[in-house]
Amino acid sequence: MDQIISFISTNLPMIYLLIFTVLLGFEVISKVPTVLHTPLMSGANAISGVIVIGAIILVRRSAPDDYFSLALGTLGIALGMVNVVGGFAVTDRMLEMFKKKKKK
């Protein structure tokens, strides 16, 4: 119990951030029209590639001979970058098609 109480009091700003982000996320995304469901999903997919930042931190911190961390960290970077680059590029490609139609 003491552990939990001290955890809460030391991590209060983090808990605020979590709660407000959850509320904000639902508020921002709740009214997306059906037309944009697929681009929203692939755009969100690209954002989930933000994990690449964690992988970069891991590799930067690793010792140069710690091949376990380096190899897995680099794998993490590559996987995350596929998400980031592929996700944003394909979303843009889709949205370009939506845009084109509007002018006609």
Binding site: G25, V28, A44, I47
Partner: peptide, 8 residues
């Protein structure tokens, strides 16, 4: 970023 994707 992660939470926004989770919400979406």
């Amino acid at each position: 970023g992660g939470i926004l994707v989770g919400a979406s």
